[in-house]
C-alpha cells in the first residue's frame, strides 16, 4: 500500500495514486503526500488500484479537500471501481467531490 504523488507538467494539478488497501494505515503517507503543497493546487485522487476503502479513508479525503481550499477546492476522484463508487455514494461524496 502506497501513495504515489505526481505533479502535472503545468504544475497546477497533483495526482495522488493510491494502491492497495486505502484505510487508516495509510493516513500518514497520504497526508505527507500533500501537506507541504502551496495553496491553490488542484488534486486528482486515482483510486483505480485502491482495492478497498474504509471510513477513515473518507475522512482522509475530506482532510485533503479542506487543505485544498474547502468549498472552493478542486479535488477529483477518478478510476473508482463500482464497490468504491458505491461507498462514496452512500457517504454523499458526489456533493463534495467530482467523481469520475
Amino acid at each position: 500500500m502506497t501513495v504515489r504523488a505526481v505533479l502535472s507538467e503545468e504544475g497546477r494539478t497533483k495526482v495522488l495514486r493510491v494502491e492497495g488497501r486505502f484505510d487508516f494505515n495509510m493516513h500518514r503517507e497520504f497526508r505527507e503526500a500533500y501537506q507541504d503543497d502551496p495553496p491553490g493546487l488542484a488534486y486528482e485522487v486515482d483510486l483505480a488500484d485502491a482495492e478497498y476503502l474504509d471510513s477513515s479513508a473518507l475522512g482522509m479525503l475530506l482532510l485533503l479537500r479542506e487543505h485544498a481550499g474547502g468549498d472552493g477546492a478542486r479535488v477529483r476522484l477518478r478510476g473508482c471501481r463500482p464497490a468504491v463508487r458505491r461507498i462514496l455514494e452512500i457517504a454523499n461524496f458526489h456533493e463534495l467531490f467530482e467523481i469520475a
Binding site: 474504509d54 475522512g59 452512500i90 457517504a91
Partner: peptide, 10 residues
C-alpha cells in the same frame, strides 16, 4: 463534512 463518524453511516 466532518472527517469522522462515517463508519456507522456506511
Amino acid at each position: 463534512q466532518l472527517a469522522h463518524g462515517r463508519g456507522i453511516a456506511l
